[in-house]
Amino acid sequence: MKSTDTKTDGGTDIDHDLFDSGSDVELARSEQLSNAFTEYVYAPVMILWDDWRARIGSLIILGYLLMGTIGVILVEPATLHEGPRLEGVFEGTEFLLGTDILGRDLFAMIVHATPAMLQMIIAGGVFTTVVATIIGTVSGYKGGVLDRVLMTVSDIALTIPGLPLVIVIVVIFPPQHPVTVGILLSINAWAGLARALRSEVLAVREESYVEASRTMNVPTRVILTKDIIPNLMPYIMVNFVGAARGVIFGSVGLYFLGILPFTTLNWGVILNMAYTQGGSLYTLETIHWFLAPMITIILLSYGLILFAQGMDRVFNPRIRARHVQDDAGTEDTEDDGQIQTTVTEQI
């Protein structure tokens, strides 16, 4: 196995080319780029595509993204009395999802509520994950008094009921912009994630490879970003989605009950109108008015859950390696290997 002949010329100078490989392994810039593309874009996409849940989830989310960007351009905003009052679903070709009591196109309303909704979701998700990641990693990695203080704060934030607190704040300071709404709604959503991340960091920081990096004098910043945070990605992604769902549920609920000011169109606002103006509860005639936004919400939430489950796989190096290699045309023995390990474990 060992090449003993190299030893004969063994000087003690280690900057000697003894250990430099003869072959030219320099890669062309384009090749490097394509490698990076494979590792960071192609492989994750392929992994997602591999799993039916993730595939459906991504498609659903993509649909909503398109709706919130291109859809807004393609579909004209709803105007009063553009159609008959309370037309049902698929009754005409013009208003696919029917119209409301003022003759507005429900489909157009839903489409035009999407951008604000997306802004809100992303704001809430980003706020939660960023705050939680910072607090969780700092607390776990630094330890000491700072850790105690941060975790006590997290515990309190975790205990205070989110919705009532948000309601109180919202009543006192009505938020206007969707981004503010998103952040307000996730005001204490970070706490649970921060705690989970902290215990994960505590475990990871004891791993030998982190200690090895410390021993190599790798800066803390690099250790955190390269050695520690990648291990947290599954948590972060799953919780990003969790936070996003929280924002959807919370905002729609609060708009629905009319607690949040109707500054922007929102699916919850449509629900509210159907509930209060349409009397959806009492007659079948207006049921579509209520169902349309409802299904919109449920579908997005469904897509997000499926997507989160798929993301779990993207961050698993075992699965990722297989895809990068597949692409390079290397023989794929991983599947066999895994089965074999499970069997040999039993032997």
Binding site: S208, Y209, A212, D227, P230, N231
Partner: peptide, 18 residues
């Protein structure tokens, strides 16, 4: 720091899995 290095016990955790 650079002059003093370490090799750990557990091969499983001595390298960053990611």
């Amino acid at each position: 720091r650079q002059s003093l290095q370490i090799i750990h016990q557990d091969p499983g955790s001595s390298l960053n899995p990611n």
